[in-house]
Design a protein around this nucleic acid. Structure first.
Lengths: 353, 353
DNA sequence: CTGTTAGCGCTTTCAA
DNA sequence: TTGAAAGCGCTAACAG
């Protein structure tokens, strides 16, 4: 009754039907090696008759030692990770680059709470891209090296043998901060990306800063502190507009109120601007705002002053590094640089200060 | 010199080291079957000594006939597909549901232009979720049935044996349209989601409507037409705010100007509102706008009147269907319903009409 | 509880 | 140009 009992044809079945050996049939399919046109056609015909859909990828990958799958480890839930266009762009870049070798992307979640990066240990992966996954990073890397799977890290230090796709987070942020200082700002607030996998929200304390596990946030913070060592900060629980709004309210209701805010992402910056509007503050007259990323924030009416980073290129570089590693090369780390974009959200502080 | 030549230890190596048979060692690892604690520990110890990282997934999946990988086929580029939160929510739902069986998500792009759904033919997939992928659908399904891989389709008809996760697109849209009619609207414009894989933008003609390959768009259109048979329409090239803006400008500069616009997604609706603002029209006084989806559009200041659909639940249902299919069951199709949310973007047309 | 035996389906030498 | 043989590393029967 149940159709499930049908066994699919195998290459040997096809070969038998075509009157040749399995090895020959294999050649006919893979195109590798010399096969006469006549034979190839016989094989293909036999395959069609039997509804053979091509070599079983499981067997093939066992034999070849390659699965054609590249893993991408993302923080937490899919929905969280993809709310920021920066991540999507990176993913897109990776996807594009590994498309060259017809590999596909396996989405792995090495989430904060979750204790099971099951898939990292068990998935048939040829290589892995780690998205600056903070604390999990170390564990992931050791797992992968043990399994002999090459990895690339995007923004995060993973040791000698793991190429890193880096970004000049500190220098870039410093540029933005210097811009503010040149305009005359002195009281500056910072909205910080999550510092720990728990994504706890709250005031930025020295301990929290010191124990940070997230490279990107830490580096950007350092860049801001290079210029404004005493700036107050609020840690957001994610790179979302809403979080920027919350953080913005917090910073802008403190006394004395900052005249400028450095947000570690454009989404956060957009939220800060929203908070300012709520409080009746004009941007940039009453408050200057600097973002980071250079993404278009849908629905933001301002030309945001920000640091434009090449997200997609970063992803592509990661993908390319992987392609090379799979080809037996040892690509070195790359650092991308962000460019300062002076938009319309920064201006000198009001004279009254 | 090159470390790559190291061969990883195998289960047999571990077994030998532990002084037991491979099959016993296998049992010790998988936890299946009876193994004495003593033996298990010996095996684990041996594994640690040899830096054995667990069974090779390729071999395991060949033997077991399962790879633990579920494919998700998305339109086009990763970056396009994920710009709409609805898609992300669905993906998240799928991810959550299949997490139950520790499967991971393989992202497959069966894009418009690309002629190669290579991965669908060659990836080691246990099952596949097809995201209403229009034209490619038929081809994908036939490929999958040939390979014997179970599939689920989200919004799209794939024939008898493929369970569908459907949405009441037509009925829901009709509800929104009726709401407008009850308010007194007569001249209504429609912003339509892409009707073809080429995502061509432009005026909605009868031919285009008739030859549509995308179920969701067609159904929603039908729902609007149920109430406003003669409504003018513009087809957007994607579910983005910017596209809504373009379409909105188009519709709102026509004469006579519509008093209401039905947008097939919230992002499009947000764009339409933006267009209205540009033109100095107030929403809802001068223009009523209805969306679809019920997603929070960052940066939209309006409480949008819309049809709220359970995106995440849809994804979860798809994932659950897959889990059941992998368990040998034959889940049936499910239809989800959207609920009308009356927000603040709809009102009676101005008397002057 | 443990070992033996047989493959999963394919590819890749190597000989013919 | 084709075929025969030998596994890739694991697991599932079945015996012991």
């Amino acid at each position: 009754m149940d159709g499930d009992t049908i066994t699919r044809p195998t290459l040997s079945d096809v070969a038998a039907r075509a009157g040749c050996s399995p090895s020959t049939a294999s050649l006919a399919f893979s195109g590798t090696g010399p096969v006469s046109d006549a034979t190839r056609e016989k094989v293909l015909a036999a395959a069609k008759e039997l509804h053979y859909a091509g070599p079983d990828p499981r067997a093939r990958s066992l034999r070849r030692g390659r699965s054609g799958i590249v893993g991408v480890v993302i923080d937490d839930r899919v929905s969280e990770a993809f709310r920021d266009p920066v991540n999507i762009a990176m993913l897109d870049g990776v996807s594009e680059a590994i498309g060259e070798i017809d590999a596909a992307l396996l989405l792995l979640t090495a989430g904060a709470g979750s204790d099971k990066p099951v898939s990292l240990e068990t998935a048939p992966l040829d290589a892995v891209v780690l998205f600056g996954c903070s604390t999990t990073l170390e564990r992931s890397i050791s797992m992968l090296t043990q399994r002999g799977i090459p990895a690339v890290v995007i923004e995060g230090d993973a040791g000698e043998n793991v190429p890193e796709i880096a970004l000049d987070n500190r220098e870039a942020t410093r540029l933005g901060a210097e811009h503010l200082r040149e305009l005359g700002h002195e009281r500056v607030g910072i909205v910080v990306l999550p510092l720990a996998p728990d994504r706890a929200r709250g005031a930025l304390t020295e301990e929290r800063a010191a124990s940070s596990a997230v490279a990107t946030a830490t580096e950007r913070l350092a860049g801001a502190r290079d210029v404004f060592p005493d700036a107050a900060g609020v840690v957001a629980s994610g790179s979302y507009l809403d979080e920027g709004l919350i953080a913005g309210r917090e910073l802008l209701t403190a006394t004395p109120r900052p005249t400028a805010i450095i947000a570690q992402s454009d989404l956060l910056a957009a939220g800060v601007i929203r908070a300012a509007e709520e409080l009746g503050l004009r941007v940039p007259e009453d408050l200057s705002v600097v973002g980071f990323d250079g993404v278009r924030v849908d629905g933001l009416d301002y030309d945001l002053t920000t640091l434009v980073q090449p997200s997609q290129a970063k992803g592509r570089a990661a993908g390319e590094a992987i392609v090379r590693m799979l080809a037996g090369e040892h690509p070195s780390s790359v650092t991308f640089t962000s460019t300062f974009h002076r938009g319309a959200t920064t201006a000198p502080p009001r004279v009254a200060d």
